[in-house]
Each structure stands twice: as C-alpha cells, then as structure tokens.
C-alpha cells in the first residue's frame, strides 16, 4: 500500500494561517490502513487545529469528512456541493489523492496534511517498510524477489558495491545490504547465474509523468472525463 506520515503540526498551522473555515478531507484506503489519514486521524486534526487556533487568537472553523478514496473521481464527487462552504481544503490522502482533489476543485486552495512516503509493506501495526519504487520495469524475477532499486541505497543493478559490510549496508548497520540478501537467496535456490550476467544501463521510465492504459481500454473523451 501507499504509506504516508503526517506533516509537522506547525507546518500545517502555517499553511492554513489565513483561512477561517477549512475542511479536513480524510481518505479511507491506504492512509487509513497506515494510521495517518483515515476518519479517526481526520477528526483529530480538525480538533487540534481548532484548539491551536483558539489559543493563537485566530479562531478557525474546521470540519472533517472522510472519502472512500481520493484517487477516484466518483468519491470526490461527494464533495462537489460541500466544498463550496469552505475557504480551503486540507487533504490527508497520499500525494495522488491530494492532487486529484485539487484538480477537481481548481478554484479552491488545497493543502497536504501528510508527506507521502512510498509503497510499503505492513511489518506490524504502525511499522511499514518500503519495498517498491514503481520503476515500471520490474527485475524481481532475476533478483530473488528482492528489489535492488528500493533496497540498495545506491539503487545498483549490478551490486553489491564496496560499501557492503558483513551483510549490511554502509549507510546503516541496521540496514541489510540488498545485494547480500539477493546473493543469499539466489544461492539457496541455485539461481546465481541470474546475477552473474551484467544488467545493462537502464532506460529509466520514471523520469516523466506516466499514463497507464490497460489493454482493451482507451483514454475517455475530454467531456466524459469531467
């Protein structure tokens, strides 16, 4: 899932300083699962803001609403009327949701309440680890199901580098060396031949905005898109 971390409260306060009536928009999917932007967190932020602004002698009226998803037009439509009552919206969705919300209501200031932190697994409640950088050319078949783009601090395709340190990465003794793990797993599976080959220079596919259209589908006409 997509994980995120709430922005420092002071930063949120600064963004909203000049607004008097704000709607906190939570998102019920990934950010709710990773305990940062679901209904509960949206309500907490609304309350915190009201209290802090009251103390700062700059009162604000804050409501909150949580949509099923902010990355789907049909759920954003639920706010078409409601948003007109507010000076600004602050979204607790990931960067995708925040932007889709801003795109839906282009005349309305939309602010982020979280910093999006990647595609991660749920190691335990509240503990998430990044596993994918969505590079659009997955090499997991040849690297034993361990992603060097994400797990190697240098994103090397022909690792390990000289910084591999007794199974860990030079950047942090608690960070395993991705290439150490890749070697270990492939050796166990008798598949080391995969990494004895040179992986050629990568044609990066994440250097410009990407659009994905699945086979059998097409981009809708402009009128329909709205």
């Amino acid at each position: 899932m997509i994980v995120a971390k709430r922005k420092p409260f002071d930063e949120i306060m600064e963004m909203l300083e000049e607004y008097k009536k704000v709607l906190v928009v939570g998102c019920g999917t990934c950010v709710a699962v990773c305990l940062v932007g679901g209904e509960k967190e949206a309500n907490i932020l609304a309350t915190e803001l009201e209290m802090a602004r009251k103390l700062a002698d700059n009162p604000i009226e804050v409501d909150s609403v949580t949509l099923e998803r902010q990355c789907d037009r049909e759920y954003l439509a639920e706010l078409d009327d409601k948003q007109t009552d507010y000076d600004a919206l602050i979204s607790m969705a990931c960067g995708v949701g925040i932007q889709f919300l801003a795109e839906r209501f282009p005349d309305k200031p939309v602010f982020p309440a979280v910093d999006t932190a990647g595609l991660a697994v749920n190691q335990a409640v509240g503990w998430y680890e990044e596993r994918c950088r969505s590079c659009q050319q997955c090499v997991l078949a040849w690297t034993g199901g361990i992603c060097p783009v994400t797990m190697c601090a240098k994103g090397l395709y022909n690792g390990p580098c000289g910084g591999t340190n007794l199974g860990n990465c030079e950047i942090d003794p608690d960070q395993p060396c991705a290439w150490y793990l890749i070697h270990e797993r492939l050796a166990k599976q008798g598949r080391l031949h995969h990494i004895k080959q040179i992986y050629e220079a990568v044609g990066w596919r994440d250097t410009m905005p990407r659009t994905l259209i699945q086979p059998g589908y097409k981009k809708p006409e402009k009128e329909e898109a709205k």
Partner: peptide, 11 residues
C-alpha cells in the same frame, strides 16, 4: 547512480 560501475565500464 544513473548507471552503476559495471555499466560505466561497459560504456
């Protein structure tokens, strides 16, 4: 790290 040391050699 657009390319790595192995790819640099090849280049």
């Amino acid at each position: 790290f657009d390319i790595d040391s192995m790819q640099l050699i090849a280049m």
